[in-house]
């Protein structure tokens, strides 16, 4: 099955992917500041509220990254099965490489 033969190195990383580090930095890096009970936020101890805030922020950050990946053609929806949905309708998955080749093609095209 040549569909998944090894492919040359791909460029899948973008600068905005670094946003995904923010939750770890905020959640854990802010501990010495956030490790307190008062003021209560919505009835929750400050520490809990701080962490919950970062959980919500994580969802938002990941949503932004997904959105940007979609715009940049990095979040291709490759469906299992012969020929189904290659290239995410952007017409680039054709030719030799299939799936992976298409992702790379889009990356390079920019």
């Amino acid at each position: 099955m040549p569909a998944d033969a090894p492919v040359p190195p791909r460029r899948r990383w973008r600068a905005y992917h670094a946003l995904a580090l923010l939750p770890a930095i905020g959640m854990l890096g802010g501990l010495s500041f956030a490790n307190r009970v008062y003021p209560l936020v919505l009835g929750l101890p400050f520490l809990i509220a701080w962490l919950v805030g970062w959980v919500l922020a994580t969802a938002a950050i990941m949503a932004i990254i997904l959105k940007l990946d979609r715009v940049n053609g990095l979040a291709t929806d490759e469906v299992q099965g012969e020929g189904a949905g290659w290239g995410d309708g952007e017409g680039e998955g054709s030719g030799e490489g299939k799936g992976k080749g298409s992702a790379e093609g889009k990356g390079k095209a920019r």
């Binding site: 959980v55 990946d69 929806d77 490759e78 299992q80």
Partner: peptide, 24 residues
């Protein structure tokens, strides 16, 4: 079935696991 499943899940699962908070 597809790799985007994981990307969508990465957005939804942090919210979903907030339920753990109610266990606490």
């Amino acid at each position: 079935r597809s790799e985007n499943v994981f990307r969508k899940n990465a957005v939804m699962l942090p919210l979903y696991q907030l339920v753990v908070l109610f266990v606490f």
